[in-house]
Write a protein that binds this DNA or RNA. Structure first.
Lengths: 148, 148, 148, 148
DNA sequence: TTTT
DNA sequence: TTTT
């Protein structure tokens, strides 16, 4: 019992397809890039403004990795619940860097699809393999506008 | 209406006294450093493990800055609710860096004190200046473990 | 400062159109009937089970009443955030009864539309009057399967 | 996957000791009575007002029943997370009645103690039997204000 | 990069 | 009564 709470709840859209990777010990994890946006009227100018926030999401829970893999794609709207974790790493010039992520793992983690995105095929079975995704263009991987 | 949600809920303890700063346009903001911790039994070794996570919190809401200023101190346990924002900045060597913070601003922001920390005096009036704080005693929350 | 938290978060679908009523002092309130459902596989029989829970929602916040009135209809999927309140009333035979509702009022209340439901017309302006709704059939009002 | 969310988060104090009962099939469940309160200044009179809300909480999760049994008592402050359920029952005069409860069961359920209440002994072992509880002292949480 |  |  720790007397503390660390919870993040997001409703947003995936900016790209989930990225599935394997750890050294053979478990799969999924990385999501989720956009939340809010809009408001500027008090002075009266014009409509919008701000989009991008979130890194890392899924360790086996069942939720399966959901991400089989059901989510670029544009999917999701509800997710996880916890904030800041990870330390060292960049190529030896400087300490920190990256903050929303981690879905263990109790309290949740991932729910809120819409259906057009995907070739669709999946009736939970364990069905995902439809073949087109090879991602390199621009997706090299895009340096993404803030992480 | 944006159809999105960006919410962080934390229950944790302040690692140090709130830091109050003023913006150029004269408004006050408060920075909190909040620790959440979780503990679990390692499946293999059976030993008790603990992990502490540190969160940067920035308060813009005028009323909540006042709460932080007048009622919170190192060691205070709080419940807070805000949103995730990642801010870009440039370090002294000109490299882009990102910092993720929990921002308390506008609707949906909340800050509640969950315990009373010994402070000389206490405050009956919301707007009373904080009592002079005693030098902080050594604490289980060690300043040099805070990663920022 | 109360040191307490009373928060309900729902994502669900409206079971009927919002009901708009006026209080004696001329303010409008909206009542929503929201269904959440969960499904699971029964451990013994292996069959898929589903349970639907119905929630009474009462909206007092002026802006959110407007959202309900102008944008929501039977079938709408919403995210909402409010607080639990149990109201006491006396039934026709003089017995005390209690009704628990999710109340959207003041800080921390939220209501977001997560999908678009087909409605005749649609509304470009926040303040535009809602499309003319067909008169509700009496069966809607008399339905005694609704648990409240 | 249902696309819905049913979540209640409370921080409040127990109005009485947890009540532990056994189901027919031998599992233990715990009932909590939790008070949340909020206070505000009346806009017209300027006087401070307070409203206390009482919540019925039912715990089915085995581990959380153990937490309630061994660590909680009247006056304990807790954080808990569960879901809303309305249960139908028939009163002694044969009238259908409904009772809405916060249910802690399965994924997403949480119960955390936020303070220590004086208890003779305390418990170092999770599974230790609770110390004999002293007769409860008169308290600011008056039993006869609890509406159930 | 998403979405409205 | 909703929805998947």
């Amino acid at each position: 019992m720790s007397g503390s709470l660390n919870k993040v709840c997001l409703i947003g859209n995936l900016g790209k397809d989930p990225e599935i990777r394997s750890t050294q010990d053979g478990r799969e994890i999924a990385n999501l890039t989720v956009a939340t946006s809010e809009s408001w009227k500027d008090k002075n100018s009266g014009e409509r403004k919008e701000r989009t926030e991008w979130h890194r999401v890392v899924i360790f829970s086996e069942g939720l990795v399966k959901v991400a893999k089989n059901w989510l794609a670029k544009g999917s709207k999701v509800y997710l619940e996880g916890q904030l974790q800041t990870r330390k790493w060292t960049d190529q010039s030896g400087v300490d860097r920190y990256s903050t992520e929303v981690v879905l793992q263990g109790y309290g983690a949740a991932l729910t699809m809120l819409n259906k995105v057009d995907r070739d095929g669709g999946h009736e079975e939970d364990d069905a393999p995902p439809a073949q995704r087109p090879q991602q263009p390199p621009s997706e991987l090299l895009d340096d506008e993404i803030p992480f």
